[in-house]
Design a binder for these strands. Structure first.
Lengths: 349, 349
DNA sequence: GTGAAAGCGCTAACAA
DNA sequence: TTGTTAGCGCTTTCAC
């Protein structure tokens, strides 16, 4: 049995005594502040090395009246969009010498609430929220009212900011790019699977789909549309249902890659050959989109940029260089053509 | 422009004044410690609500001489194994009322070093490390020497502990299960793609493969084996190379799901039909394994259990209920049969 | 049942 | 160039 349950950490005071200087001098040496003699500096550094001293970031944060971390709140890290987003946010925070506390609300609103109550303004100076359906916007606004910096990233509506600083992208434009691609290939029987309710988080993507259909005078039937959850399995189910009732569709626009990958599987299980019998296009360009066979044609959104600018905006907000109405735009979405789209069989044959 | 750049947070002192009691009484009410009169308690709670007071976790941690978080260190969250692991660790930490600081070393050893130096024993009471190739074991041991609780999870060698408390699983047994499955289906020309160097992190998985081949007296050729990185793309490349030089293989054992998914794509691109022309089996059972077409036959390891027990061990270590030599074992790996394996064509035809 | 004093480890402000 | 004082927001100890 290990006898030493508690090894007290070396403090700045012990280093100061060892080096024969005051604690302030040690602090100054370590932070490169103030003026310190060359000889003194050397002695301090030696003592630090000898004792293996590491500054206590908790104490430092307390006295500097700031929190030691930034917080990132998202729905669930197992959705493959978030690892990409989180990695970029993590590396970006590191550039500002910040560590990241991650909260998975994991479809439990209470977890998010409790996280925000405990962490925001206490363990974390600010909160970056990766937008998801069911975002507790009123809670975020209340936090902001209390003076805590809050940023929403992956905001879908560039023209309708949430009253909270946000980083946004042209989600409607992304959808239009996707649907236009289908139309240009010659598709006229185009279904849609939307990963939210009609007025939910993908409403602008849905609007983009509607707009292109209208512009190109393609008949749009309510029976060719499905609204469902934003998951692989729900995409699978929605496609199974849609294709059973509308087997003559030649293409499906899906509002997000994750359900689109489910759609690809459903099509395959129903005996469709993609893209010959059915084209599938969606939005995001997560990693699995290029690993599926066929590869998923999709409209890439600037995931890393959304994360990086989110962290940047949070920092700006903390320094008074941004306000509650700041809206940061990101690069335009880009169509990435892979194997899941082609001209409809009646044309290509 | 927003004028209030800095809204000082409500402190316990202000709540105390508002309620007309001492700060200690507020603290006691909030933490349910000590004895407090019913009437006083009510007044305190009212003041807390009125002021919107939230305890500062940084200050609390400082005075309690513990850090406010636990740390999780892993190679890269974009590897689909880690989101599953991280989510389980996160939820588990929450049960101990701890938040989680995540470090992506992202193939930069310096990032891990710097994280450990800054965070361990300061922002975080302890560090849970999700094992990966190139783990800085000496650094971890040095941390441990300084009295900082460190746990390695996903340890591959139950019989060779690392000198650091660990949570382990039967990786060799998992490999044997996988390869035996191929043998039982009738395969005799079995290749192997290992996601590490021969003596690297997957060495026990490789040993399991060797052992079954020896037991079943199947000829094992060095030219049927490839050692590569543990990634999708490297799996793809290794399989392309292997199948080009050994087109008569009927099955491939891959040491991990991520490269195995690459192998599936390579086989498809080379014109193999899986499982008719080629069977593929691997280890882990990450989510994408069941989403690929065909589904990947694999040996599931207890990912969530590895994470949960890792957090539990870290907590035990902090309370002196575990030691440097503690080894925690997890449930036995289980074969999950999906569409990527079948009897070889010469038999099934 | 309640409160006053002390101090966690550190840094800002100022003094020497 | 270096040291001293004060105190960040909280909890522990111990007196009342």
């Amino acid at each position: 049995m290990n006898s030493k349950h508690f090894t007290p950490a070396v403090t700045i005071r012990e280093v100061a005594e060892d080096a024969g200087v005051s604690v302030m001098t040690v602090s100054n040496v370590l932070r490169g502040r103030g003026r310190v003699g060359e000889e003194t500096r050397r002695r301090v550094l030696e003592a630090v090395a000898r004792q293996g001293y590491r500054p206590n970031l908790t104490a430092r944060a307390l006295v500097e009246r700031k929190a030691p971390t930034l917080a990132l709140m998202l729905s669930c890290i197992t959705n493959p969009f978030y690892p990409e987003f989180t990695l970029a946010a993590n590396l970006s925070a590191l550039k500002y010498e910040r560590h990241l506390l991650v909260c998975n609300t994991d479809h439990e609103p209470d977890r998010g609430t409790s996280f925000l109550q405990q962490v925001a303004g206490s363990l974390s100076d600010g909160v970056l929220v990766a937008n998801y359906g069911g975002l507790p916007i009123e809670e975020l606004r209340a936090l902001q009212q209390r003076g805590i910096p809050v940023v929403i990233s992956v905001w879908e509506l560039p023209d309708e900011p949430p009253g909270i600083p946000c980083v946004t992208f042209d989600s409607k434009g992304a959808a239009k790019l996707a649907v236009r691609h289908l139309v240009e290939l010659g598709h006229r029987r185009i279904g849609a699977i939307i990963g939210s309710r009609k007025n939910g988080i993908h409403s602008a993507r849905y609007a983009g789909y509607q707009e292109v259909m209208r512009e190109t005078k393609i008949r749009r039937l309510a029976s060719d549309e499905r609204f469902t959850e934003d998951s692989f399995d729900d995409g699978y189910r929605a496609a199974t249902d849609l294709l059973s009732s509308r087997p003559d569709l030649t293409a499906i626009f899906v509002s997000n890659d994750l359900p689109a990958l489910g759609v690809l599987n459903a099509a395959s299980d129903l005996g469709y050959s993609v893209p010959h019998d059915l084209s599938v296009v969606s939005i995001t360009d997560i990693v699995p989109a290029r690993q599926s066979r066929p590869g998923l044609t999709t409209v890439a959104i600037p995931t890393a940029e959304l994360a990086e600018k989110g962290i940047g905006l949070l920092i700006d907000l903390m320094n008074g260089r941004a306000t509650e109405t700041t809206v940061i735009h990101t690069s335009a979405p880009k169509l990435v053509i892979r194997g899941s789209t082609a001209a409809p069989a009646s044309i290509s044959n």
